[in-house]
Design a protein around this nucleic acid. Sequence first.
DNA 1: GATGAATGAGTGTTCATTCAT
DNA 2: GATGAATGAACACTCATTCAT
Lengths: 191, 191, 191, 191
Amino acid sequence: MGTREKILNAAKAQFANKGFHGTLMSDIAQSAGVGKGTIYRYFPSKEELFGSIINSQLESFENRIRVAANSGDSERDVLMDIAKIHFEEYRASKEVIEILVMEGLNKIGDIKQDFKKGIAKIEQIVSQVISKGIYNGVFRDVDPKRTAVIFLGLIWTVLKHGIVMEERDLEKKYFDTIFDIIFHGLLCPDY
Amino acid sequence: MGTREKILNAAKAQFANKGFHGTLMSDIAQSAGVGKGTIYRYFPSKEELFGSIINSQLESFENRIRVAANSGDSERDVLMDIAKIHFEEYRASKEVIEILVMEGLNKIGDIKQDFKKGIAKIEQIVSQVISKGIYNGVFRDVDPKRTAVIFLGLIWTVLKHGIVMEERDLEKKYFDTIFDIIFHGLLCPDY
Amino acid sequence: MGTREKILNAAKAQFANKGFHGTLMSDIAQSAGVGKGTIYRYFPSKEELFGSIINSQLESFENRIRVAANSGDSERDVLMDIAKIHFEEYRASKEVIEILVMEGLNKIGDIKQDFKKGIAKIEQIVSQVISKGIYNGVFRDVDPKRTAVIFLGLIWTVLKHGIVMEERDLEKKYFDTIFDIIFHGLLCPDY
Amino acid sequence: MGTREKILNAAKAQFANKGFHGTLMSDIAQSAGVGKGTIYRYFPSKEELFGSIINSQLESFENRIRVAANSGDSERDVLMDIAKIHFEEYRASKEVIEILVMEGLNKIGDIKQDFKKGIAKIEQIVSQVISKGIYNGVFRDVDPKRTAVIFLGLIWTVLKHGIVMEERDLEKKYFDTIFDIIFHGLLCPDY
DNA sequence: GATGAATGAGTGTTCATTCAT
DNA sequence: GATGAATGAACACTCATTCAT
């Protein structure tokens, strides 16, 4: 494994465990098995190292979601795919998702701006999916932008809940409930 | 205004603006118009000052939500009331809600534990409301606990979205959309 | 008991227990049962309060020792009286002696200078006693000044030892040994 | 000179000059010609730095005294050697002895306990020397433990006197007088 | 390229002292 | 005269960053 990669992996583990402020550069160096100075040969600062992690994960999300959105599947299935992508990334890289969910919005340098931009892009993709779904008669006539926010919010909420409450097998429990409610609503037909 | 209150207000504003780690005790002192040492007459540490703010807001939420849950109204209306309470508290004290939403789960002393406990209590109340709603034929037969998590998470997410994206008139925009979707679902009857 | 006296007693107890730097003015105030501000009506500063205690004890020593020196007794007995005075004062006011022994020479303001002057005066008295003793054929022909230092040093040493090692019944144990050695020497006649 | 050594030397000088509480870490850093943070690479706290100095000197004393005690010389000479060791160490490292004498018993962390233990060990060695001296007919039949306390205390007191009164050529003045008195006593044979 | 010893700006906290009541 | 709330200068300690080797 390359040095840069070793540093990134160590940083992900440390930031996820102890948060941005709780993580020392020396922790990362030690955990990566490199000298402290070496980190600075690859990343100009702690902040940029942190930002790197956040941004690369956001890009990965954006790309995968964009692919799903253009798959040609029913918009109903696209939404389910988007949810699956989130849970998959969570399973594949719990630590990075933990960082995203817990620290993504901390007021650390320009991280927050990057995060906002990343989220906004994803929201826009989802919003377009919903618009298409409405146009194609799959979804009721809801406000697409707000609904995108709500939909993604739901997924993030469940991820966060799993992380915070330290639940195992998060996705299996919640996946069906989320879609049951978001697709069919909570109320009985009579109400 | 009492000194303690001045300090609390200044602290809320500073923590909301700059986050826990970005806020200096001297900022709070200056913004409160008191000496740095004075803060320590009222709060034993920065952490406890922060925790004080978090906990008192969580208690306020819990109490108001408990009252709403016992109001005797239809469970449908209780859920709407609970959402209204969140938006109201947000309007009344944007800064504290901002702190709760942005920093409540940071790894700062025991804050995270307090926060988790507070959230768990509220989730339990909502879970009972949903159970009753199912029993009374208002709600479909969903899993009450998971649905409570999803419902509350949704509201928090929307609050967070409003804060992060700096939207104005947050509640007016989202309130109806949230309940339209969560009550009636996203899919057209045919799907 | 007058307020000034209450403060002095409380200060003696606190300084003896916790040392100068370990004692807070608020400790003294509380232990004296007065307000913190009240101390400053009687003593201009913590340092002066401390100095007051040191100096008044040194004066008491000086006076009693001067009286003993002028008693007309044999110089042998005068030395024993001087030792007795030390042990008596220790018994009567352990705390002040503790302060004298443990903190008298700390580099706190001008305390050290006062202490040095007080000790020098006492040494001079003892030196004169020894001179007279030599003149009167009681003592061997030793250097009176150095012998005074040694004699007083012995007594202080034993006091300090008792305080540090927290021995009880200090004086009974050591009094005879000190005078046995200092009067008759350690060596057997043959050596 | 190694960094650790530079720091230790600077710390000795500063502590001796200004006492523990009067010495700032930044003073030590400046005087050592290193940055403030560098001190903390070698010593975990001001207290430990101080304790380090105290303890290493106490160990040095103990070792040298133990060697002297086992030299096989007459117990009379061993006592004189022990006194010489004290004066030698004083000459070699006035500052550390000054710290020992002036601050060794202050209530600073666990220093006092270390100091007490160190002194107790040395007292025990001396006590054994005196016991042997009595057994071998060199010393009169005195209490060995108390005599050890008195003997060592006397030496320490004279060192302290020299430091406090800022006398030069301390040892030359006092050495003979101390042993004249302590060996042969103060009284004329008739008394 | 890699290192880790050195750095010093930055921060939470303490506590003697003041002064309005 | 007595008080104790308020003060802010002072200080130990941290840690991201640098740079000589």
